[in-house]
């Protein structure tokens, strides 16, 4: 069974370590916050100017002045702080944020990422993604293994305009967890019941399979 988006988030959450400052992108990455392992304390950074993001507010407690980078109403946790957008990207650029999780349309085997533009079709803008991928020490991409047409999103090289180059470290898809290595995508784990053969078939970039590949457990 391929993972659903909640399981993708859960798998990524296993990468969190105590004391991490973490920036979670919009979509599946946001869900990672729901699966922070017990006994681990992380601080969530929201690039619109908040460290210490908490859960959504209870109904009736929404505050229009308190949102995350996805423009969703949120809350703060004890020990949080607010700051302006330059300071926010200052802490990102200077490498203070330990882990960045974001979505992608394409990732190449050398770690390039494309996630902001489809020429002639969609122009939403890069938001903070280019700043994040240019500076983050550790970037995990959360995405589906193939696009809606069934084409691989893990490619020899990206076909869409790039967001950043040689920056992605790991990828968690509905089928597998992979690491970007100098030789290509290295298969680390596979989704329960998904065969290595299927992953090979749906990965158009170079795939490295060494030894037995463990199934993910939840």
């Amino acid at each position: 069974m391929a993972l659903d988006k909640y399981q993708i988030a859960q798998q990524i959450a296993k990468e969190l370590k105590d004391g991490y400052y973490v920036n979670l992108g919009i979509g599946i990455p946001t869900l990672v916050a729901n699966y922070i392992p017990e006994g681990i304390s992380v601080v969530l950074q929201s690039e619109n100017g908040l460290l210490g993001m908490g859960p959504f507010p209870e109904e009736g407690q929404e505050d229009a002045d308190l949102i995350n980078a996805g423009k969703q109403t949120i809350t703060t946790v004890a020990g949080s702080s607010f700051f302006d957008s330059a300071l926010s990207f200052g802490m990102i650029r200077s490498g203070k944020v330990d882990l960045t999780v974001l979505g992608a349309m394409e990732v190449s085997e050398n770690g390039d990422i494309a996630n902001w533009k489809i020429p002639g079709k969609m122009v939403k803008g890069m938001g903070g993604a280019m700043d994040l991928v240019a500076s983050a020490k550790n970037i995990i991409v959360a995405m589906m293994h193939t696009n809606p047409k069934g084409e691989s999103k893990l490619l020899p090289q990206c076909s869409l305009p790039l967001t950043g180059i040689r920056c992605v470290k790991k990828i968690v898809t509905d089928l597998a967890m992979l690491e970007v290595t100098p030789g290509g995508f290295k298969l680390l784990e596979r989704a329960p019941g998904v065969t290595v053969e299927e992953i090979k078939q749906k990965t158009s970039g170079k795939l490295i399979v060494e030894g037995d590949i463990a199934e993910m457990t939840f």
């Binding site: 209870e58 229009a64 423009k71």
Partner: peptide
């Protein structure tokens, strides 16, 4: 007006 773009809440 302070319009909220994405009103997200959790259950009490």
């Amino acid at each position: 007006e302070k319009r909220i773009e994405q009103r997200t809440v959790r259950k009490k």
